[in-house]
Nucleic acid binder design. Structure first.
Lengths: 225, 225
DNA sequence: GTTGAAATTAGTACGAA
DNA sequence: TTCGTACTAATTTCAAC
């Protein structure tokens, strides 16, 4: 519950866009990203709107689900879970539902996403030591019939973690890298970019890039669970 | 800044454990994980301690860095960034510092971790559409000399995302899966688990599991940047 | 959408157990 | 250390503009 950004999560259907986000909304989200505990009064001041307005918008963002929850970011090392690992899972076809159900039973899993490419899903776990990761993979994951195979890599260092990314972050992007498209969002021109789900393994323009589509027979993955 | 759980981040040395976390601390973190905006009064009530004590502990957790920051969790789809991709990067040796520096310049990057295995780092980005991911990889990443090669997969669905995992989550684990070790943390027995950094590609007990160590010549990766 | 004033709640300080 | 209480400052709510 509470965390599905995708569409295949549960029974909750996706409703239409209930709230059009304007620049002020984004500004509010920007502040809330840095400090989720600011009072609405301070928020109003920072954003440059009145308190009542801030309260209204704050409530709207919350009620509309744009803000899903507030949380604390903690230092995992100090909390006793200093080992992070990524487990790439190959799931047996037509056992996705079971796979999801089993995942919900694993509180040590911090993140799980279904991906295109060689594997079907990526799981991120946080443990006290390396042996625990080993035990988790070989004892717990191995017992799930839906799991066909796994591949585990350890995270040596978490270089960067941003609370979340906003469309407004792009504004700070100008002038760097190659030339950018005039309209950063929803470009109407028929791009040559490869869509997810259509496998294509050949090299791309610059030679050192590679995009990996979904494994065969997994085109309708999103609707399966 | 502000996000390094690992050790290779910057110049800030790792100080000793400044705070021994007891059961009450964990309980506080548990509440804060679900609702980062609770008043300390409500927190005290939920945890079952006095208001004054809650203030003391809350401040201690904050001052000690166990709690790094508070933030809002948002629905990226509604915020206009519905496409998520993982970019696995192979980094040219001895160019890690430059790689890190470039990353800091990319606000669209939500997460970056250095990993063992076939690739050197994993980057998670969030964009408005697939074409933007393509542009980001081919135009921005390709221009970084430190980047030798990339492999991109798209995330079709984010099944699960927990704000963070706590050692106490393990308590809910009893009786499921295979038998667990008596002491969940810091097991003193010499386990046979493969450590990170020592490559080993052979199969493990159950046959369908695979652990992937660091690529050759990358043993001293943590000290490099 | 804004301002101001009342009611409530949060944060602090201190003595006692 | 932890608790309880009193005190001060801030926030939220609700009103009128």
């Amino acid at each position: 519950m509470s965390s599905n950004s995708g569409s295949g999560g549960g029974a909750t259907g996706r409703i239409g866009i209930g709230l059009e986000l304007d620049a002020t909304h984004l500004k509010i989200l920007e502040v809330l990203r840095e400090n989720g505990r600011v009072s609405v009064s301070a928020l109003a001041e920072r954003v440059g709107i009145s308190r009542a307005n801030a309260y209204t918008r704050f409530e709207a963002l919350r009620a509309d689900g744009v803000i899903k929850r507030f949380t604390a970011e903690i230092d995992h090392q100090r909390a006793g879970l200093g080992i992070v690992a990524l487990i790439f899972v190959t799931v047996r076809q037509q056992m996705w539902r079971q796979f999801r159900a089993q995942l919900a039973q694993m509180p040590e899993v911090e993140y799980c996403a279904i991906t295109t490419g060689q594997h079907d899903a990526m799981i991120q776990v946080r443990m006290a030591d390396v042996a625990e990761v080993h035990a988790m993979v070989t004892e717990r994951l191995a017992n799930i019939p839906a799991v066909k195979a796994t591949e585990t890599v350890f995270i040596l260092d978490e270089v960067l973690r941003r609370p979340y990314v906003l469309p407004s972050d792009r504004e700070r992007d100008r002038g760097r890298g190659a030339a950018r498209r005039p309209t950063p969002s929803a470009s109407p021109e028929p791009e040559q970019g490869p869509g997810p789900g259509q496998g294509q393994g050949q090299g791309l323009p610059l030679g050192k890039m590679r995009f990996v589509g979904a494994a065969e027979g997994r085109a309708a993955l999103r609707d399966e669970t």
